[in-house]
């Protein structure tokens, strides 16, 4: 993927771009808002990673300008300001996701991955399939190898989120944000407990597990081992 990273801190930028390159992304770097704006306008990127506080042109201002030109490239905002208000401001300005500094590189990679391959929401999906797992979104029915699995509505929503992002790692805070719709770092293993419940129902009777733990990151729903 082609990613534009606009971050003024040399070392943080180096760290992020090294991490992105390691998993096979192509990274362009900008150290200030003006340069970032030129780059964003000049080329089509898959994802833009944008620091909030930048020299010359502020991150949010830059985002508003990009959005005003009709550019819908997914934007992940990075900020040392972890407040709810700040997040709301960032998302209102046109950001697609918001990550508070400091963050684990794995968290950033997982979010970039999900952002870049986000399904366009124009066509409403009614059925998700991962290996032998079938999820009927309308009937809210889950079947594995033709066998129906009963689950609570929360478990269903966790599974749905994992299935929509099948093959991509999903972090605990992404689950809390997208399944529970609350934004904060849970700091405990509470999300793990919910996922492990779900895993029991999903994988207990089958030789081939679908729900995998990604060490240091979170979880992934994947058909191949």
């Amino acid at each position: 993927m082609h990613i534009l990273l606009i971050e003024d801190d040399e070392r943080v930028a180096g760290h992020i771009s090294a991490g992105l390159q390691e998993v096979g992304h192509l990274v362009d770097r900008s150290a200030d808002g003006r340069d970032g704006l030129f780059k964003a306008a000049g080329e089509q990127y898959d994802v833009i990673i944008l620091d909030r506080m930048l020299p010359f042109v502020d991150g949010l201002k830059l985002l508003q300008i990009i959005r005003a030109t009709g550019d819908v490239t997914p934007v992940l905002i990075l900020s040392a300001l972890g407040d709810v208000d700040e997040r709301v401001k960032g998302l209102r300005a046109g950001g697609d996701d918001y990550l508070a500094k400091p963050f684990a590189l794995s968290e950033l990679l997982a979010r970039v991955d999900v952002l870049a391959r986000r399904q366009p929401v124009t066509r409403e999906q009614v059925r998700l399939v991962v290996g032998d797992l079938e999820i009927d979104l309308l009937g809210r029915v889950v079947k594995r190898a033709g066998r129906r699995i009963d689950m609570t509505s929360r478990e269903f929503r966790i599974l749905e989120y994992l299935a929509r992002n099948a093959g991509r790692a999903v972090t605990r805070s992404m689950l809390l944000e997208n399944v529970w719709d609350y934004h904060f770092d849970p700091q405990t293993n509470i999300i793990d407990q919910h996922v492990s419940r779900l895993r029991q129902k999903l994988d207990r009777d089958f030789a081939q597990p679908l729900l995998h733990t990604v060490r240091g990151t979170g979880y992934v729903l994947r058909a191949d081992p």
Partner: peptide, 21 residues
């Protein structure tokens, strides 16, 4: 303090993650 400490912390973490990779 937040700004001054969070950045070195982030760098420390980055270095450790690099080492661990």
């Amino acid at each position: 303090v937040a700004h001054e400490l969070r950045t070195p912390l982030a760098r420390l973490r980055a270095d450790l993650e690099d080492l661990a990779s």
